[in-house]
Every structure is written in C-alpha cells, then in structure tokens.
Design a protein around this nucleic acid. Sequence first.
DNA 1: CCAAAAGTGTTGGGGATACACCCATGA
DNA 2: TCATGGGTGTATCCCCAACACTTTTGG
Lengths: 222, 222
Amino acid sequence: MSKKEEIESPVVAVDAVIFTVIENRLNVLLTKIKYGPYAGSWGVPGGRVRMDESLDEAAKRELLEKTGLKNVYLEQLYSFGRVDRDPRARIISVAYFALVDHNKVKLRTTGKYEDIKWLPLKGTGKLAYDHNEIVDYALFRLKNKIKYTNIFYSLLPEKFTLSELQRIYEITLEKKLDKRNFRKKIFSSGLIKEAGVTVGMPHRPSKLYSFRNRKPVFVEMF
Amino acid sequence: MSKKEEIESPVVAVDAVIFTVIENRLNVLLTKIKYGPYAGSWGVPGGRVRMDESLDEAAKRELLEKTGLKNVYLEQLYSFGRVDRDPRARIISVAYFALVDHNKVKLRTTGKYEDIKWLPLKGTGKLAYDHNEIVDYALFRLKNKIKYTNIFYSLLPEKFTLSELQRIYEITLEKKLDKRNFRKKIFSSGLIKEAGVTVGMPHRPSKLYSFRNRKPVFVEMF
DNA sequence: CCAAAAGTGTTGGGGATACACCCATGA
DNA sequence: TCATGGGTGTATCCCCAACACTTTTGG
C-alpha cells in the first residue's frame, strides 16, 4: 500500500474564473488555446496542480501568473469531473472564482496560450471544454454571494463612491436598485467606512468610502 | 502533449459525509480504518475515482457500496487538497454529502475497512485525516441548505407527520421552533402534500404528508 | 376521564419597498 | 445659471415572531 501504485488516476487541474467590470459590463479573463482539439477556442485560464502545492495555492499561482495579482478575493467554486470533459485526457478541474480590479492587472501571456484578454460575459460565445458551464456557475455564485458579503472589496479601487458601488451591484445583479434603500442597506451592514471626498467634479463632491475589511465578511443585506 | 505524460499528479478520491437521524440526534456514517497511519481511527467512507466514472458517479458508487442506497440526496460539498492531508500520498478529496433514512440502510463492510457504523455527530472524537474539517463543513452546509430546500425528503420515510418533520429541523438546527409558525412556513412553501392519516395512536390522529418532489427544490423558508 | 400529541388565529413590531425633492460644484 | 450627479426622509405594507388554548384519540 505504501509503495507507488500503478493504478491510473485522473489528472488534477485548477481553472480560474476571474471577473472584473469594464465599461459597465462584467468581463471574464479568457485565454486562447494553442494546442489540442480546442486550439483557437477561448477558455478560462487553468493548469495542473503540482505535487507540492495545495489546491488553493495552485489557484493563487494561476491568478498570479496571469494577472500579477495577489491578495484578491479567490474562492473555490466547484469541481468538474465528467469523464469526457477533455477529449485528450481524464482531467478533473477544481474551479475557482476571483474578483479583480482590471486597472491593477497587467495581462501576461505564457507559452501555453496564444492570447489572453478580457471578454464581456455576454458574448464570449462557445468556450472550450465545459468552460461555459463553469463560467455560468461562477456567475450564479457571484450573484448570490454579493448579497451577504463584502467581496467587492476586491473589484473596486481602494476608495470609491457609493454610486460606484451601487453601479457594480446593478451590473452584477442585472437590475436597477433604489438609491436611498441601497445606501441604507450598505450603511447598516457596517461593511464600509468613510475615506474622504472627491474633488474637481462638475457637480457636488461625493464622499469616498472604503471597505472596512479586505477579507471576506458575511452579513445579511439584500 | 497527447502522449502519456510522466508528470506526477495527485490522486483523486471522493469522500462521502452521510447523515441520518437516529434517536433524536444527527449521526454520520463512519468506517474504521484498517491500514496506514490512521489504522484504528474512524473516518468517512471514501475511495479513489476511477478513470471511467465522473466524480458524481464515484460518489454514488461509494454511497451504494456502503449503504445499498440509490436516489438519495447527494451533493458535492467541497474539494480538500492540502499537501499533507494524507501522510502517505498526495490525495485530493472531493467531498460529497448525503442524507439518508437509516432504516433503509443495510451497512456493509468492504475489505478495506474493519468496521462501519453510525456515530452521533457530537462525540465522534478525532477523526482520521482532515475528516473533522470535512464533517464540520458538511454540517454547516446542511444547516443552511434546509432553510431553502426540500432535501429532507431523503432523510424521512415516504410519509411523515408535521411533528416528525419539525423534529428533524430542530435537531439539525439545534434549536426549538414554534409549532404554529413552522407549519405556516412549511405549508406556504408548497413543498409537501397530504398523504393520509395516522391510526392507532393514543392521541389525536395526525395527518401524514409527503414531499411533492423527490429531487432538490429551492424555495425561501426560514 | 385522563394523558398525550395534534392542530389552530391573532397581534405587534421591524424591516423592506416605494417614492420626490434639495444640494454643491464646475463650467 | 445651468447641468450634473450627490445626497436625504417618510409612509406603507408585509412578513415574521411571539403567544395559549381546544381537539381527538386510546387506554
């Protein structure tokens, strides 16, 4: 039992669904695949899990390699394991999802991919493997999660106005929110604190806020 | 790329946290481990994922082998992948959790385990590997999930009284519920339907109910 | 007639929703 | 002074929680 076993085993990979907001739309980071049956297709970035790293570490490494970012919101989503999800080999994908501020990202293509870029969530077309399913599920989880957490700390700049925050919520939830009620909820959640005011706008200056914590916090909100 | 690769890869296993209620307490199905550094310890049942089965299929197979049951509530929980979680080998565990009616279960020990039995959730003591963490997380998810789903269809007999259902909720949530409010919520959820009455009790007969669906359904309740 | 569990209605409070107007600034 | 977005208060409704007594049966 303790010797090396010869039983074949599936390969383990992590895939990362990385969301950001660009021009009032949710975007996902996608890579163009160079080799194999899906060459030319777009898919979410991913890679094999090494023997000396945990799943979380593998996901962090993937995120760092592709975006240069650390310390962003990154959470395990689900593990996808259909037998035929990759026609070439038996691969189990442990999917993660992350939120980033795209202004902080310097995209870097590695040898494995032909290209890497942000694509609006609506209009990615058919993705490689089962990646449409993975992205859809990530979106579902995201929509739920923002109702009771502060995870947008990872998507917005350090300081932001309440209107900006509300816009992100509206984009993600795909519906308009009442400004007054939104403010009441956010304030009563205690998730944010004041952080100055804007200047130089052609209208009344707005207060700036920042999240009290840069780690996930759970509350009830919506 | 398409040839067999020689890169070492973690082994993939599924572990199943199987809950039931016995004598007003939540119990978990545990197996006594025969070999290795945790020999003699108890842990949740699990096994390697085969090359020709999906993760879900592996979990179903595990459940069937240990309990003889099919078609019960079984859902993927989380994947655990710390490097040192098994001192002998690098093993990724995709954990599932299930709810069963223990009266329908015929426990069967397979060669791999010395013993298998139900143990009350409080008082399992220290389990093998990271199985305490896995069981704790499964319980957390269970407590949440019953607030907005019908998954107890899998734990109760086909027909049950509202008092029985309420008892299961109280045991799981570890708190008393108001009988009148409980009934209102359950009825308004539309999850159950009438299914006869009890007879031969030394008190007023109660109506019997059954779940409208034997597949997971989502509603808002608690 | 007694024990045991089943079953049922009403009230009050708090949180959510809906809604419209004034404010401060730069140009 | 005007255009632009920032910022605020209140009335209503509905849902939830709290609460106690009557009903039906077997023994």
